[in-house]
Design a protein around this nucleic acid. Structure first.
Lengths: 339, 339
DNA sequence: ATGAAAGCGCTAACAG
DNA sequence: CTGTTAGCGCTTTCAT
């Protein structure tokens, strides 16, 4: 194995001291641009890469970020799995670009274990507020969707579910829907609460009766079916249903089928997290694309900003979501796009 | 912030030297059991945790493992997403228990980036053989499902798809199926190749004509539909189809519905990766549970064994899979389990 | 503007 | 069996 090229090697090659090399490479100190450029050139030529753990020891930082993902498989903690994979991959990419490693930590770690993690910061995806990781006060924190506040609210990266819900309801209305209903999971996660509140506000504004059913986790298609049937058995019957999970939306479509109701003619359907399942459904279901890649990237950037940008006051970030209109909510004939 | 308790603090408290503490805690050297116990007790009492990056610098190891997950969202690289989340969470848990961190690295990293990762080992999930991570010869490697060999074959953790395929086909046969067909994705990933080979061998043994259709990624329900229709249009018509992905199996069920064929009366259906989708389908689809948690754990253990267990010759691991028989492949009336 | 020197917290030779 | 001594590769005062 070829010996690692270190800061001393490049110091020798450039005819300066290790200190100067360190300064030149990290933009510290006051070094003439010329010297800096030369040192950097030599470093590149020699294929220098900083020895991460040496730097970590010297600086007291680990250049490692943690990301915690809620329950694996059981339950419906993560709205859609492809959502999470995209988020994870993009977060990891952003971290690596910035010179950090992103470690996955399993859910449900003890306080002691959590305390011993050598990390500079952590991302908690869709927190319930129970996560021990959120109790660490010595690391930077970011949540995606907001943590039920308990003590200081960590910075978050989230979608504007309030706006998005309104957007869906207005889309429904424009397609002739006058009695929209809502199918959600139990409250506690911020996005659920946001959708419910926004839905209720819209109903009050438009003088219609709010109609909400809850389905308990695991929120599968099958579990959603009875709740959807209850909604559809209501009098007057709702003519549109918005679901807070992709799989429950499929349950609605199935329920409509059972009752010989046509989607979208008799019932509009939309869901909050876009997924392959919704796109492939029959009919394809209108959905909100939450932009998982952007959420992952932003969460990492916000974390690193807290770590490095000590001065500026940082703010939580709202990532735009996109409403993807599909056949399940289009009463007019579909216009086919060429290609 | 309370100052970290270090090895020197506990040395002082226990009235020994730092070296003795180090040895006592790491099981090195020959230290009387009594001393060792006392030191460990003091360490626990003081809530000592080794400073990871200091140890890393001193030992030259990073105590960090990488895991690479193929494409996020697009394509069908990962057979099922919940499969991957479970694998990831369990791998991460196993790593943390053993004192390692598990970092996620995005797919498609350049050779240079891959080289600069400060890791002791790496897991590549369902490799295609293109992964630059597999070219690092200075770290331990494990793949889940086997890497298309290109140079040395890394150790792997895999299911026995050959056996499992046979198990499915025999189950089909026991339910009266005499013309089983196969619906797969393109070759290249080892599990696909294994299933195809095993299927062909079975057909030859049982004197039936192999009937295989391929569906190109992204292997969605919709993409599988035409392939399934082609299979069902074959003469004589197959009376059972085994699919190598959960979503393509759903495509088969849809195709059967379109042709007014009943599942399971006219057609048995099974799939290779169990998922919520299959369990919730109508009818529920028989599937192979690959035991993702075990695969994740074993992969980490095998990696760490390579790192620490320099002596013993290590072997790749086959994780048992479980056939979960559901309505889609049961001709006899279902016996309901109580509860 | 640059470099010498002192660690960061731990482990590993090597002496006692 | 235990303790002293030297670093691991980098950053960072602090002189020059």
């Amino acid at each position: 194995v070829a010996k690692r090229v270190g800061i001393n090697d490049i110091a020798k090659a450039a005819g300066v001291s290790p200190t100067t090399v360190s300064h030149a490479l990290n933009g510290k100190g006051r070094i003439p641009a010329e010297t800096r450029a030369r040192v950097q050139a030599v470093a590149k030529r020699l294929g220098y890469t900083a020895h991460a753990q040496a730097r970590a020891l010297a600086t007291g930082r680990s250049f490692t970020l943690a990301i915690q993902i809620a329950g694996g498989g059981r339950g419906a903690m993560v709205p859609d799995f492809s959502y999470f994979i995209e988020l994870l991959n993009c977060a990891s990419e952003a971290a690596i670009e910035a010179g950090y490693g992103l470690v996955v930590v399993p859910p449900g770690l003890s306080k002691a274990t959590v305390r011993s993690l050598p990390i500079d910061g952590a991302i908690v995806v869709d927190p319930t507020g129970q996560e021990n990781l959120l109790t660490r006060r010595d690391v930077a924190l970011v949540t995606t969707s907001r943590a039920p506040t308990k003590g200081r609210q960590p910075l978050w990266v989230d979608n504007d579910q309030t706006h998005a819900t309104r957007q869906v309801l207005e889309h429904f209305a424009s397609e002739g829907c006058i009695r929209p209903a809502l199918l959600t999971t139990p409250p506690g996660q911020s996005y659920v609460d946001d959708v419910v509140a926004s839905y209720q506000a819209w109903c009050i504004e438009h003088g219609c009766e709010p109609l909400i059913e809850r389905v308990n986790p695991p929120a599968t298609e099958a579990a959603a079916l009875p709740a959807a049937l209850r909604l559809l058995g209501h009098n007057p019957r709702p003519d549109g249903i918005y679901a807070t999970l992709d799989r429950t939306a499929i349950g609605i479509v199935q329920a409509a089928g059972k009752l010989k109701l046509s989607v979208p003619e008799d019932l509009l359907v939309a869901a909050v997290t876009d997924s392959p399942l919704l796109a492939a459904s029959n009919p394809p279901v209108t959905a909100l694309d939450l932009n998982a890649p952007e959420i992952g990237r932003r969460a990492v950037q916000l974390l690193i900003a807290q770590l490095e940008h000590t001065d500026g006051s940082l703010e939580s970030i709202t990532v735009p979501s996109t409403l993807i209109v599909r056949a399940s909510s289009m009463r007019r004939p579909t216009r086919q796009l060429p290609g």
